[in-house]
Every structure is written in structure tokens, then in C-alpha cells.
């Protein structure tokens, strides 16, 4: 699984019961996040190191980050990054688990390690990601596309594209690569599905591809034959888009953005995507090209 929210992971692994999680989530926003907990959350420091510095701080009036740098556990650049990250809600939940003595530091370290491993791609999937150099190619491409579209949400949309590529590799086809050179123009033989979500701005997301590719993608996602039913084919591709957007909502939430998703639907008439307002991300799979489309609409 990719991008699972930490609270969901705790539930799934039965490390916490739903009622306790509910109570912690309610007070999460008001919790001041300690730097040591964040460092542990990010896998940058061990529980032993954090406890050591906490002990030092009880004796000496010093900032956690300063002591961590003096001890060589972190460098200043990392401390500065952590200070920027201090608003992240995922780490606040981690801290609450400690503050309410639901876990010790050592126990939490093991849980966080398991969580990070759970969220990783498999070795095959990582290899696929590196083979296509998708991360290296995607970021500058998205920057350019955002500039052309006149949108400023570059970080959010680049993260969207990156997560989409990973989800394509994870759930559809290990051979998926970014294929900037060969963008297909829409034809009558193409099919598109879409889903909008709002988060202060409205983002329309869509997938467009030829019918044969659509059927293959539907089968890959469903992991069962779907050719006998157009409705089942549609359901499969729609559910993949919905799954991806749901997982992306977790990234948004980590960045203090609450998105609201509309149900995904099939596009009855193909949109005109020739304008620059549509960000177009062409992906090549083993069975054909899938075009990811994004459009940002400022809300009034």
C-alpha cells in the first residue's frame, strides 16, 4: 500500500482501537509537536538518541535541535527542514501516542519502522520507478506544465503526478514510464473518466486513452476479465482514479489541506484538451498510452 495515513495503519494493525484513535485525532490540532518526535517520525533519529537528548534537556536549558547538531545526530540543514515540517499532523499523532503512554519510545520506533516499510514500493516496483527515471523527468516537466497553465500549485500538482505514477506502477503496470515525446491527440476512439475535488481551488482530474487501452487497464486493475461488461470496465477504471485521488487526499491532509472529492464519472463527450489550461501527463504502459489530465479552476 502506498501513502497510508499513520492512523489508518495503527487501526489496520490493531495497534490502537477506533475509540482511542478518535479521541487522539480530536485533540491533534492543538498539540505542540516536539522536534525529537518529528525526527523519529521521519526516521532521522532513533528512540535512544531522542531519549538521550531529552535527558540532557532536563539538566541543561538547550534547544533540541542545537543539542542534536552538537551530538552529530542531525545537521543544521535537517534541523531547519524539521522546523518547517513541525505543522505535520501525522507526527502530532505520533506524539500523542507517547504523551498518553500508549507506546514507549522504543515501541513507537518499531511501529514507525513498520509503517515506513508498509508504505514503500516493493523492490520490483522501485526498480520500475528507477528504470523509467520517472521521478527525475516528472518534476521539471510538471513545473513547465504548471507555468504554461498559469497555475501556482506546482508542488501539489507535482506530488499528484508522482503519486499517480507510483500508483500506476503499483496497481496497473510495472512498465509505466513518462512519455513526454509522444502525446496522443484525442480521437473519436478514445475514452475518458474524470473526478473533481475541491480544496479552496477546484481540480479536475481525468484519464484519457484509446478504447483498447481502456479495456486492458480495466482488466489490470480489476484482476479479472471485464470485457463482457462495459459497465464493469467503466467501474474498474473509475475506481482506480477514485483510489488514487483518495490516496492523494492523504498527502493533502499531511499538508494541512482538506479536499472534498466528488464521485468519479465517465466523460460522455471528450473534452477539448488542446489549451494550455489542461496539464497533460502522457504515460506509456506495456499496453498503450494513458494520458493523465489536470485542470485547476480558481473558485470564486
Amino acid at each position: 500500500m502506498l501513502n497510508l495515513y499513520f492512523g489508518s495503519y495503527l487501526l489496520q494493525q490493531r495497534l490502537i482501537d477506533p475509540e482511542t484513535l478518535r479521541k487522539l485525532l480530536k485533540v491533534q490540532r492543538e498539540t505542540h509537536l516536539r522536534l525529537g518526535v518529528l525526527a523519529m517520525q521521519e526516521g532521522l533519529m532513533t528512540a535512544e538518541q531522542v531519549k538521550e537528548i531529552n535527558d540532557i534537556q532536563r539538566r541543561v536549558d538547550a534547544l533540541f535541535g542545537e543539542v542534536a547538531v552538537q551530538k552529530g545526530y542531525l545537521n543544521q540543514e535537517t534541523v531547519d527542514s524539521l522546523l518547517q515540517l513541525q505543522k505535520r499532523s501525522t507526527a502530532r499523532l505520533t506524539q500523542l501516542l507517547l504523551d498518553h503512554q500508549l507506546f514507549t519510545y522504543d515501541e513507537l520506533e518499531a511501529v514507525l519502522k513498520g509503517f515506513r516499510e508498509y508504505n514503500q514500493l516493493s523492490a520490483d516496483e522501485e526498480e520500475a520507478l528507477e528504470r523509467g527515471n520517472v521521478e527525475g523527468l516528472l518534476a521539471p516537466y510538471m513545473v513547465l506544465q504548471c507555468q504554461l497553465a498559469g497555475v501556482t500549485e506546482t508542488e501539489a500538482l507535482t506530488a499528484y503526478g508522482s503519486l499517480f505514477l507510483r500508483n500506476m506502477i503499483r496497481f496497473i503496470d510495472h512498465e509505466t514510464v513518462l512519455d513526454i515525446e509522444s502525446q496522443q491527440l484525442p480521437t473519436e476512439d478514445m475514452v475518458a473518466v474524470k473526478q473533481a475535488f475541491s480544496m479552496g481551488i477546484n481540480i479536475q482530474t481525468a484519464l484519457m486513452m484509446e478504447k483498447e487501452v481502456y479495456q486492458k487497464m480495466a482488466e489490470k486493475h480489476a484482476r479479472m476479465p471485464v470485457a463482457e461488461s462495459e459497465e464493469l470496465m467503466d467501474a474498474s477504471v473509475l475506481e482506480f482514479l477514485n483510489l488514487h485521488n483518495g490516496l492523494y487526499s492523504i498527502w493533502l491532509s499531511d499538508h494541512e489541506i482538506r479536499p472534498f472529492l466528488e464521485p468519479p464519472t465517465k466523460w460522455t463527450a471528450l473534452p477539448d484538451i488542446s489549451g494550455d489550461e489542461w496539464i497533460k501527463v502522457p504515460l506509456q504502459t506495456a499496453f498503450g498510452q494513458v494520458m493523465l489530465l489536470l485542470k485547476v479552476e480558481e473558485t470564486s
Binding site: 495515513y5 499523532l93 477514485n242 483510489l243 487526499s249
Partner: peptide, 25 residues
């Protein structure tokens, strides 16, 4: 049982009376 497993939705579901939450898939 939802793909929208972010913190806010999880809390909203639990507050509304859901007994548990399963992240899709």
C-alpha cells in the same frame, strides 16, 4: 471502507459513529 483515508475523513467517520475504518484497496 474508503480510499479517502485522510485524517479529517477518518475522524469524521469515527465521530459519526463508524466502528472502524478500512483503507482501500
Amino acid at each position: 471502507l474508503s480510499s479517502v483515508g485522510n485524517r479529517e475523513t477518518l475522524l469524521e467517520a469515527l465521530e459519526a459513529g463508524a466502528l472502524d475504518f478500512i483503507q482501500k484497496p
